[in-house]
Amino acid sequence: MSAREEILARVRRAVAGAEDVEIPRGYRAGRPAEGAVEGLVELFAERVDDYRAVVHVVPAAEVPAKIDACLGGRRVIVPDGFGRAGGWDDLDTADGVVTTCAVAIAETGTIVLDHGPGQGTRAQTLVPDYHLCVVRADQIVAGVPEAVARLDPARPLTWISGPSATSDIELNRVEGVHGPRTLEVIIST
């Protein structure tokens, strides 16, 4: 018998006669209706700031200027579809990366990349030490369930909540290990 067949047979033997259970979804009852929540931008900004990431809330028209100000003289990767000219090509020597995102989560201060247009490859948002992410206000959802519902599992997804960190030394949080040590977020309203 192959390992596959044997494991499946063992599983079937092990659970024979066991009762199945209903999954209570009571947690969904309290979820806010899409679009019905006030203050998502403020909550998202506050929660991102809790991770010691830098947050700017800027009217849409002023975003390009804000990006310029944030990037300063950095050599920055600009992924295809971001809509900005120029950009550095060499991953190993880049100082940073600027991207959009797929979804952002207010309750947890999380941005999610699905690496579609404007978001670059997974490596492009990982290797450089600085990540600037532009989030549109309409991309911000209340919580994790709303984000999961919006995402496409067929795409590679990267959930980012603040800069790289570790709690491995005495369980105290230290920012900056292998991922970008600085995360900056522009919320476009």
Binding site: Y27, P145, V148, P156, L157, T158, W159, S161, G162
Partner: peptide
């Protein structure tokens, strides 16, 4: 949607861990 709420808060005591990777 359930486990990405349960795990980080129970584990590191954060609202969300810094990085979650998903691939198919």
């Amino acid at each position: 949607e359930v486990f990405l709420q349960l795990l980080p808060r129970s584990s590191t005591g954060e609202r969300m861990n810094p990085y979650t990777s998903m691939w198919t």
